[in-house]
Design a protein around this nucleic acid. Structure first.
Length: 677
DNA sequence: TTGCCTCGAGATCA
DNA sequence: CTCGAGGCAA
C-alpha cells in the first residue's frame, strides 16, 4: 500500500470512528471515550484533510461549520405540513381525548399510546436523501419554514450521514432542538464574562442560536436535537407503530427521547404523567408536558386530522407556572375601532423564564367577574405558554386601599365621550378620527404588512407624525414631503427618501389589500378578499346595499351593516377619494374564466370533517371553480359534501332530496388526481 | 406578550 | 454604538 493509500484509509477510519463516537454519545447515551480522546481524533483528521484537501467531503465530521450565508434564510415548503398538537390540561381532558378516539377507531380494547416528554425547544425538520443530510428547516407556519441547514449541520447530535450500509432513499425526521440546562448556564456564564447579553431562558437561547447568520456561532452553542416523528420515509418499510418508528429513527443514527414508552389507556397515560412529573426536576432539560400518540399507525389513519392537528395525538401540559405579583394599575388602551381595553400594569415578575409586566384584562366584565382591584396581589400565569393572564386576586392579602378599576367616561386620549353599545362588552371612544389614538392605530393598520405594506413606517414614526399634526388620516400619508419627514427624530435624508419610496410603492396595490387597509370594523383579511372577489371594484362595494352585501360568502348582517355604515360616513368617502387622487390603484380583477367557471351557479354545503382538507381549503377549492359555498342546506343546494361526523345537514339534505357526496366524490368534483394528496 | 436576531441608518466620540 | 423596524418562535 502506498503512503497515499494509507492516508486515505486513515481518513476513512477516523471519520467512521468519530461518527461512531457521536452516535454512542448522543443516540445511545453511552460514550466510550473521553472528550480529550475525541478531540485528538478530530485534530488528526483535520491535519490529514489539510494535507490532502482533495479528499475533504461535505459529510466529514470536520465539515460541520460552513460559511456565513448572507441575507435572509431561504424559504422551504414542507411536503407534509408540520402540524401543532392539541393540548390537554388534566385527566378529564385526557379522558375526553381517549373517548373521541375510541369512538373513531375500530378497536374494542384499551387504546395503546406511545408516550414521551415534550421538550421545550423549537421544532425542526431534517431531510436525508440516500443517507445524507440535505436540508434542515424550521416549522414556520407549518406549511413553509426557513432553511437552516447550515446551522443544523453544526449540531453533533444531528448526523450528517445516517448509520448503516443501506439507508432509505429519503427520510424526513422531525424533532425538537433544545438547550440543556447545564449548557444554558454555561453559555450564560460565558456571555457574562464576555460582557455580552445573557439569555432569558433555554428556549429563547436555542431559538436565537439556530437563527444565527454565522454557523460558527451556532456551533459554539450547546444545542441538542431529539427526534419525535418520521414525516416521510421512502425506500424502506415504515414500521407500523409510532414506538417502532422511533426505534427505527434510532437505528438510523438519530437521537430519540430516553423516556419513550408505550402505555395503555388513560390509566397508563396518567401513571406515566405522575412518573414524569416526579422526574421532571431531575431532568437535564426543560419539558412543558408530555405527548401521547396513538401507537398503531393504522389506528392513526382511522382517527384522521382536524384542521391544524392530528386527532390521534395530544400534549398533556403540566400546569402553567403561577406567580404572585402586584397589580400596580389598570390603564385603558384605545384601539383602532375606539374600543377601550383595560390593560394590567404589573410589578414585573419572572413567569416561566420571561418577565411579565403587562397583561390584557379583555374587558370590564372580566375584571368584575374576577373581582380584581388595583393594588391587589394577583396570581399571574402564561396561558397556552404565551399570553400572560391574571388568574385571580389573592383576596386574603387585599389591602384597605385597593381600588376598583373604573372605566373612564371620557377617552383618556382625546376626551371624547365613552359609551357602551347595547349588548356589547366593549366600551368605545366616540371620537372617531378626532382621537389621536384611533388615528395612530388606523395608520398603523393601513401601513401593516397584510394591508398596504409600507416598509419602514413603524409605530414610533407614526407617533411623531400624528403628534406633530403632519398626518391626520391615512390619505395624508401620500402628501408627505421629503423636508417634513427628514425633520423627524432618527430620520435623516436617507431614511426619509426610503420612506417616501416605500409609500410610493404602496400605491400599486390590490383591491383586497386596500379594502382591508381601510380598517372597516369586522372586515379582516378574509372578508376583504371575499368582498374584492365579489364586487371586483371599489365603486360597487361602496354603493352596495346591506342586502347585496350579505350575498357575499361569510358576510352576515352584522358585517354588512358595519360595511354600509363605514361607506355612509362622509369623512370615509373623502379619505377614499383622496387616496384614489393620490394614485392608489390596483390591477382590475378579472372575471374567472375557463376551468374556474366549471362550477358556476352551483352551491355546496360542507358538513363534518374531511380527511385531507380543512373546511377553508375545501371551500376555497370549490370557489376557485366558480361555485358558491353556503353554510345551510336549502332546495337550491347542489350537493352536500359530507366528511367524518357530519351533522344534521345530511338529514336535511336527504329530506330535500339534495345529493350527498363523500370525500372521494368531492375530490373527483374538484378534479384532484391521486398524485395530488 | 416577550425575547431573539438582522438590517439599515442615525448618533456619538475619537 | 444604539435605535427602530421587521420577522420569527412559543
Amino acid at each position: 500500500m502506498t503512503p497515499l493509500d494509507q492516508a486515505k484509509q486513515r481518513i476513512n477510519t477516523l471519520r467512521n470512528e468519530i461518527d461512531q463516537h457521536n452516535y454512542r454519545y448522543y443516540v445511545l447515551d453511552d460514550p466510550q471515550i473521553t472528550d480529550q480522546h475525541y478531540d485528538q481524533l478530530m485534530r488528526e483528521l483535520q491535519a490529514l484533510e489539510a494535507e490532502y484537501p482533495q479528499w475533504v467531503s461535505a459529510d466529514s465530521p470536520t465539515q460541520r461549520v460552513g460559511a456565513i450565508v448572507e441575507g435572509p434564510f431561504a424559504t422551504v415548503e414542507h411536503e407534509v405540513p408540520m402540524l401543532s398538537l392539541d393540548n390537554a390540561f388534566g385527566e378529564d381532558e385526557m379522558e375526553a381525548f381517549n373517548k373521541r378516539l375510541a369512538d373513531r377507531v375500530d378497536v374494542d380494547d384499551t387504546l395503546e399510546f406511545c408516550a414521551e416528554p415534550k421538550l421545550d425547544g423549537l421544532a425542526v425538520s431534517l431531510l436525508y436523501r440516500d443517507g445524507r443530510l440535505v436540508r434542515a428547516a424550521t416549522r414556520g407556519d407549518g406549511r413553509k419554514g426557513e432553511d437552516i441547514t447550515a446551522n443544523a449541520r453544526t449540531l453533533k447530535s444531528v448526523p450528517l450521514k445516517l448509520v448503516g450500509a443501506s439507508p432509505p432513499s429519503l427520510v424526513e425526521v422531525r424533532g425538537e432542538v433544545y438547550m440543556t440546562l447545564s449548557g444554558f448556564d454555561a453559555l450564560n456564564a460565558q456571555q457574562r464574562s464576555n460582557q455580552k447579553k445573557v439569555f432569558a431562558n433555554p428556549r429563547n437561547a436555542a431559538a436565537g442560536s439556530l437563527r444565527m447568520q454565522d454557523p460558527s456561532i451556532t456551533a459554539s452553542r450547546p444545542l441538542v436535537f431529539c427526534a419525535y416523528a418520521i414525516a416521510r420515509l421512502e425506500g424502506m418499510d415504515l414500521p407500523v407503530t409510532q414506538y417502532q418508528q422511533m426505534q427505527r429513527v434510532k437505528q438510523l443514527g438519530l437521537p430519540i427521547s430516553a423516556h419513550i414508552e408505550t402505555v395503555d389507556g388513560v390509566d397508563g397515560c396518567a401513571a406515566y404523567y405522575q412518573k414524569m412529573l416526579q422526574q421532571r426536576a431531575q431532568l437535564p432539560y426543560e419539558i412543558d408536558g408530555l405527548v401521547f400518540k396513538l401507537n398503531p399507525v393504522d389506528q392513526q389513519r382511522q382517527a384522521g386530522f382536524v384542521s391544524r392537528a392530528p386527532r390521534w395525538a395530544i400534549a398533556w401540559k403540566f400546569p402553567a407556572q403561577e406567580v404572585q405579583t402586584r397589580l400596580l394599575d389598570v390603564e385603558f388602551q384605545v384601539g383602532r375601532t375606539g374600543a377601550l381595553t383595560p390593560v394590567a400594569r404589573l410589578d414585573p415578575v419572572l413567569v416561566g423564564g420571561v418577565t411579565v409586566s403587562n397583561a390584557t384584562l379583555h374587558n370590564m366584565d372580566e375584571i368584575e367577574r374576577k373581582d380584581i382591584r388595583i393594588g391587589d396581589t394577583v396570581i399571574v400565569r402564561r396561558a397556552g405558554d404565551v399570553i400572560p393572564e391574571i388568574v385571580s386576586a389573592v383576596l386574603s392579602q387585599r389591602q384597605k386601599g385597593a381600588k376598583q378599576a373604573v372605566m373612564p367616561d371620557t377617552c383618556p386620549v382625546c376626551g371624547s365621550e365613552v359609551s357602551r353599545a347595547e349588548g356589547q362588552a366593549a366600551y368605545r371612544c366616540n371620537g372617531g378620527l378626532v382621537c389621536a389614538a384611533q388615528r395612530k392605530e388606523a395608520i398603523r393598520h393601513f401601513a401593516s404588512r397584510k394591508a398596504m405594506d409600507i416598509e419602514g413606517l413603524g409605530e414610533k414614526l407614526i407617533e411623531q407624525m400624528v403628534d406633530l399634526g403632519m398626518v391626520a388620516s391615512i390619505a395624508d400619508l401620500y402628501h408627505l414631503e421629503l423636508e417634513q419627514v427628514s425633520g423627524l427624530e432618527r430620520m435623516a435624508e436617507k431614511s426619509a427618501t426610503n420612506l417616501l419610496r416605500a409609500l410610493d410603492k404602496s400605491r400599486q396595490t390590490t383591491l383586497s389589500r386596500l379594502i382591508y387597509a381601510l380598517g372597516i370594523r369586522e372586515v379582516g383579511e378574509a372578508t376583504a378578499e371575499a368582498l374584492a372577489r365579489y364586487f371586483a371594484d371599489l365603486e360597487p362595494l361602496m354603493k352596495a346595499t346591506v342586502e347585496q352585501l350579505v350575498e357575499v360568502d361569510d358576510v352576515g348582517p352584522v358585517v354588512a351593516d358595519s360595511i354600509r355604515h363605514f361607506f355612509d360616513q362622509d369623512e370615509n368617502r373623502e379619505v377614499i377619494d383622496r387616496l384614489l387622487a393620490a394614485g392608489v390603484e390596483w390591477p382590475p380583477i378579472e372575471k374567472p374564466a375557463g376551468d374556474s367557471e366549471r362550477l358556476a351557479g352551483k352551491t355546496y354545503v360542507i358538513s363534518g370533517t374531511l380527511e385531507n382538507y380543512t373546511r377553508d381549503e375545501a371551500s376555497a377549492r370549490l370557489k376557485a371553480l366558480g361555485a358558491r359555498v353556503s353554510s345551510s342546506v336549502s332546495k337550491k343546494t347542489s350537493a352536500v359534501i359530507a366528511g367524518d361526523k357530519p351533522g344534521s345537514k345530511i338529514d336535511k339534505a336527504q329530506n330535500l332530496g339534495v345529493a350527498v357526496l363523500d370525500e372521494a366524490a368531492f375530490e373527483q368534483l374538484i378534479g384532484v388526481h391521486d398524485d395530488e394528496t
